[in-house]
Simulated scan of single mutants.
Amino acid sequence: MRIITSILALLASLLLTACNNTPDHVALNTVKTGTPALWKVSGTKPGQLGTAYMFGTIHILPDDVQWRTPALEAAIAESDRLVIEVLGLEDTQNAAKIFSRLAISPGQAKLDDRINPALHDDLDRIIEASNLPERTLNRMETWAAALSLASAQTRNLGLDSSGGVEQKLTAQFEKAGKPIEALETIELQLGYFDKLPEQQQRQMLTSVLEESEDAQLAFEKLFNAWMTGDLEHIVTLSDTGILTDPKTREYLLVARNLNWVDQLDKRLQRPGTSLVAVGAAHLAGPDAVQASLAKRGYKVEKIQ
């Protein structure tokens, strides 16, 4: 749940309109300077005309960390476009409408009734700390409540999703007048959760509650693994919660990766250089996007 939450907590956090207060920043035990993983993908066959730099990201950054490196800046300068997971998050009003349309459904059971009674105290504690109205959460489908509560925990660490890697890269490419493209829409990305069977949605909510007391440590582990380019640790962190179920992992991670591979393969059949900046979990392990591109004949070099 930790990795998947990091992918989509950004969407949910945009919609936490009840959380108008800004929490104090928590002292985090995080690496201050690092070298996040970066690959270069280039063609080796006729028709493979393009180049892509693949950069694993994290969607939320603490203050005063140095994640930019000479190798990354050189890749940015060489790239004529940026490819990210999803566009349109800056339009919070539209994002909220999309979220509400998918998240709110009539006839939902109270959240208390969707979890093990042993977790009731944890749920009450998290809701109280989140400043989210319990009535609103009870109207949400289970996946949406889980993401909203996970995002609230991130906010309670004093972390602001508006300052993530994608936002900073997007601003840089916009300033340079370079186009920005997306691999998914907001509807599609949220739709993956919306289409999960209720049992798996409840597993999501359970994971959020069970991991709530370790939210700070979980973020620190993920962030430090990203900053140091520790791919094995990222894989270990991703193999938790609902992703321990092979069918759920296939649906939420592997299938999305393969969809992106198809899109990137088509881009790489055209001249040009792209910087592809997506969540680090998508570029780690045997199902990584760049590993699948290598199987299609592309040359993949890890340059950082």
Rank of each mutant, 00 (worst) to 15 (best):
K247S: 08
R155A: 12
E166F: 10
G177K: 04
W226P: 04
V165G: 05
G191N: 07
L243M: 13
G163A: 06
H233W: 06
Q199P: 00
K195P: 01
A225E: 09
E181N: 12
A146Y: 08
L188M: 14
A182Q: 04
Q167L: 03
E198C: 00
K178D: 02
E174I: 05
E213P: 00
D230W: 09
A225P: 05
A171P: 01
R202W: 02
S207C: 10
T236K: 12
D194T: 02
D214I: 04
S207R: 01
Q216V: 04
Q167G: 07
A182E: 13
I242W: 04
H233A: 13
E198A: 12
Y192Q: 07
G191Q: 06
S148D: 02
W143S: 05
E187K: 09
D230M: 02
A150N: 10
D230I: 00
D239H: 11
T244C: 11
L169C: 08
K221M: 11
T170V: 05
Q153L: 10
I180K: 05
L157Q: 10
Y192D: 06
K178M: 06
N224Q: 08
E174S: 13
P179M: 11
E211L: 12
I180D: 10
K195L: 08
L188G: 07
P197A: 11
R202S: 03
D194S: 14
E198K: 08
L183E: 07
T248L: 09
E220R: 07
A171C: 04
L217A: 14
L188W: 13
A171K: 14
F223E: 00
E232I: 03
E232Y: 04
L243G: 01
P197W: 10
T206Y: 07
E184G: 09
F173K: 00
L217N: 13
G177F: 11
Q201C: 11
H233Q: 15
L190R: 08
Q203T: 09
Q172E: 15
L149Y: 08
E174C: 09
T248Q: 11
L209R: 05
E213D: 12
Q189S: 13
V208G: 00
Q203K: 12
S207A: 15
L169K: 02
G164K: 08
P179R: 03
Q203E: 12
N224P: 12
S207T: 05
D239V: 00
L188A: 14
W226I: 03
D245A: 08
A176E: 14
L231M: 14
A225T: 05
G164Y: 13
L159W: 00
R202Y: 01
Q216W: 03
L159Y: 04
L159H: 02
E210V: 10
T206D: 11
D239Q: 14
P179A: 07
T240G: 02
R249I: 01
L159S: 04
K221A: 12
E213A: 13
L149E: 01
H233E: 15
E213K: 14
A171T: 11
A145L: 07
W226H: 09
A145M: 06
Y192R: 09
Q200L: 10
K175T: 14
S148E: 09
L205N: 05
D245S: 09
H233I: 06
T240E: 14
L196A: 05
L196R: 04
I180V: 15
F219N: 04
Q189A: 13
R249A: 12
P179W: 09
T228E: 15
P246D: 13
E174L: 13
T154E: 14
